[in-house]
Design a binder for these strands. Structure first.
Lengths: 349, 349
DNA sequence: CGATTCTGCGCAATCGATGGTGCAGAATTG
DNA sequence: CAATTCTGCACCATCGATTGCGCAGAATCG
């Protein structure tokens, strides 16, 4: 027990009076092919477990070119959606005996490239690339090194991708809001937040427009980025210019929602009450507002599950690389599983 | 460019007309000791970078017993505090050229033990253990394998730990709330949430009591666990029993705060207005409530920075293992910037 | 000019696990 | 009983990078 230091296959071999190759075969399951006697196998396994032996993964990886490491590139950990993605990835990776290595790269190209290179230098068995800004470049690196990979949340030309149904989700959310404000005109119907150059936002805008069109109505788009403060300021300017809030306000992304609420709390309650608010992205606090708001929640679990199946199903080397689409959840205030008493009073507003 | 497949030190050696050992020396900086001519070094480096060579980390790790991997055990990714810890860890690890491997273990003993073993089998250079439930057991494993490690957010006997000043933070928060409700009696002064058996909660309770004592007042504690629904129910029962809300309510942890708000939104506004609410743990939505509430934010960045310094400063093998205490921030509703709690570090235990 | 000291670099062993190959001895067959 | 087939296992090369050691040839010294 004191000399637990040198725990190699050779130590076990000596203790079990067998050769290293026999020990190796006994411990990794292919002793059948190598015709090792069952008694020998059991003796070796017993000794190995008594001594808490576990194989040096570096050596194994060097020999077999399979490391057991699975890499993920993520914009950031500290974000509700991405942290949830990280959680699901960690679960899946470990369920399959792998070791997750998650690297956050802040949506910066250089960091993304460096992280991919670093992960590859560790011989990762596969790579999952979430919300990256330069998918094609990263995919080229992976392809050159022959590393299986899949993109999540952001599609990539010529590589497998799994993304949320941004368009469908936005459309469903917009329909809810439009129904609640049947008389809102174009000027009073607003999609707020996000970056229209990125696929996610542009698809959500399309979904919003789908809903408008099928209701025979019109609306506006203010794509002011993903950050809190600029969104707050954009809404403030809008309010000051028109003297009132929009009647329909579809907020794109959780950071933007915070910005919107920051402004709304400065207004009289009855003005806020006139505004049909919805959010594409989920935060539990959304249910705690004066009027709980409808939210679209991306299904991190499904995204990762599908992406992973894709990797070890080998589907990743198909002919066509059309993105796989995962439907998000629409979370409505009234299918809340907690029954609310009386008319809601409000922490917010 | 097409044949980027076999990128080993031998390939580079052939291209540079040198031997593998020379290439190795040239690329990892110790060519000075090995008396390699500067011209040779430059030729090798040029060729290596032209071909995008980077060393196989498994092979290097096998030889040197240093992997560059740094492991972290975390209860979960999808939590504001822990995801922030993960983010800081990832930043620090990569700044030092390491590869972060973060494993979430759901506060379950078996998962914690297995994860530590798994990480060790990858020859991690160091291990950071955050919010674990069985620190002593994990520390014993690390010690047996001679792996440097440090605990964060949860102290461990006989191992280095870095923790938030829970007592000081809770005291500062309680003082704010008590001042705002100078006449609240014992029955109307409540600390709600958490698990009194765990060090974090019990220290926060002590801090709350410190504040009470120095104000010559009394209060109660309801430690109903860390989860949302039980907290909501506990507050509901309290309200029904006494016919009103407490005048001072210090909520312990972010999940509990959600539970509290879930109940508060069912009450008339004026009742809610009577209650001085504060939260130990930060959520940006806390600033967006009808009355923005004071919150204590643990400084994930500091915790990790100190823990990391500890690891590579070698401080981790000192004589005494008193936890290192990091002061949290007190975030007040009326501040735009954050106030630092400046309490003397109190002994943990 | 022979002896010593540098310079510059290559040889080969090593880290630990794996798997192709082959060799004894036992069991079976003709 | 000799020939063949099976069993059970050990030997050894290998993965790629590192490093102790040592060997040529050039430079310097006496």
């Amino acid at each position: 027990m004191a000399e637990t230091k040198p725990q190699t296959i050779y130590d076990i071999a000596r203790l079990a009076e067998a050769s290293p190759s026999t020990v190796s075969a006994a411990l990794n399951g292919n002793w059948k092919k190598r015709r090792i006697a069952r008694a020998t196998v059991e003796r070796i396994q017993r000794i190995a477990s008594e001594h808490g032996y576990s194989a040096n993964q570096q050596a194994r990886a060097l020999r077999t070119a399979k490391s057991g490491l699975v890499g993920m590139i993520l914009p950031q950990h500290d974000n509700r959606f991405f942290s949830s993605v990280g959680q699901c990835f960690s679960n899946e990776a470990r369920a399959r005996g792998g070791l997750p290595a998650i690297v956050s790269t802040r949506r910066e190209r250089d960091q993304e490239v460096e992280a991919v290179r670093q992960l590859i230098s560790y011989s990762v068995d596969a790579l999952m690339l979430v919300g990256t800004t330069h998918p094609e470049e990263l995919s080229a690196i992976c392809r050159a090194e022959n590393v299986p990979h899949v993109f999540v949340d952001q599609p990539c030309q010529g590589a497998p991708s799994v993304v949320t149904d941004n368009r469908g989700g936005a459309r469903a959310l917009a329909e809810i809001l439009l129904q609640a404000a049947p008389d809102a005109g174009e000027a009073d119907t607003v999609f707020l937040g996000g970056n229209a150059d990125l696929p996610a936002t542009s698809l959500r805008i399309l979904g919003y427009q789908d809903a408008l069109r099928s209701a025979g109505r019109q609306g506006r788009v203010i794509a002011c980025g993903y950050r809190r403060a600029p969104t707050r300021d954009a809404l403030t300017r809008e309010y000051e210019r028109r003297g009132r809030l929009p009647e329909v306000l579809l907020v794109n992304s959780i950071g933007c929602l915070e910005g919107v609420l920051e402004f709304l709390v400065t207004l009289p309650l009855d003005e806020v009450d006139q505004c049909q608010l919805g959010s594409f992205d989920f935060d539990p606090f959304g249910r705690l507002l004066r009027h709980p708001i409808p939210m679209v929640r991306q299904r991190a679990d499904e995204l990762i599950r599908v992406a992973y199946d894709h990797l070890d199903g080998g589907t990743w080397s198909r002919d066509s690389f059309d993105p796989i689409i995962v439907a998000p959840e629409l979370i409505l205030p009234d299918d809340d599983h907690f029954t609310r008493v009386n008319q809601p009073a409000l922490p917010v507003g």
